[in-house]
Amino acid sequence: MATLINDRIDVRISKEQKELIKYASSLRGFKSLSEFIVYCANVEASKIIMDNEQILKTIEDKKIFLNALLNPPVPGEGLKKAHIAYLKHNFDETEN
């Protein structure tokens, strides 16, 4: 049987923050403030991890992305033409 280990996190917050969190906790029917805080922290941590994994799943993806930022390729002819068309379009709109 697995042993449950209770670890501790100490957080200092203002009285107003505590009252707000207590009120939200009671609206959702949590038994304790600690239970509510642990639940919210787990939900938010899971969202952050999922968002991170969806964008750049692997370390290799992160390396490729970072390399593209630090060493961008030279613009090709299509991109140069698109840039000129964009500038021309914006210039034409400012004259009207």
Rank of each mutant, 00 (worst) to 15 (best):
N90T: 11
N96Y: 10
I9Q: 00
C40E: 14
M50E: 10
E60M: 04
K18G: 07
A45R: 08
V38Q: 09
A45V: 07
S32R: 02
V11E: 00
G29M: 03
A2R: 01
K63W: 05
A2G: 05
E35A: 12
I49Q: 00
V74I: 14
E35M: 01
M1I: 06
E35H: 09
G29Q: 02
E16V: 04
E19L: 13
E44W: 06
K15Y: 05
A24T: 05
K22I: 10
A24P: 00
S46D: 15
E53S: 04
L20G: 03
I64M: 07
I59Y: 12
S25C: 06
F36D: 01
E77S: 10
A68Y: 14
V11K: 00
P73Y: 10
I59M: 02
T58A: 03
I48Y: 12
Q17G: 06
L87Y: 08
F36C: 01
E53W: 11
S26E: 15
A41M: 03
N42V: 10
H89M: 07
L56T: 06
V74F: 15
M1G: 07
K62S: 09
Q17D: 13
E60I: 14
L4E: 03
M1D: 06
K57C: 09
D92Q: 12
N96W: 08
E19I: 05
T3P: 00
T94R: 02
L69K: 11
K88Q: 12
L66R: 02
K62D: 02
S46Y: 12
F91S: 04
S26M: 12
N6V: 09
K80Q: 14
S25D: 03
F91E: 04
L56C: 04
Y23W: 00
K15W: 02
I5N: 05
I21M: 03
H83G: 08
C40I: 08
K81E: 15
C40A: 14
N67M: 06
T94E: 11
R12A: 03
K63D: 10
I13H: 03
G76N: 15
A24H: 03
K22L: 12
I48W: 08
K57Y: 14
I48M: 04
I64Y: 12
D7I: 05
E77G: 07
A2I: 07
K18W: 04
H89R: 09
A45F: 13
N67V: 07
N6S: 01
Y39D: 07
E16Y: 03
G29C: 04
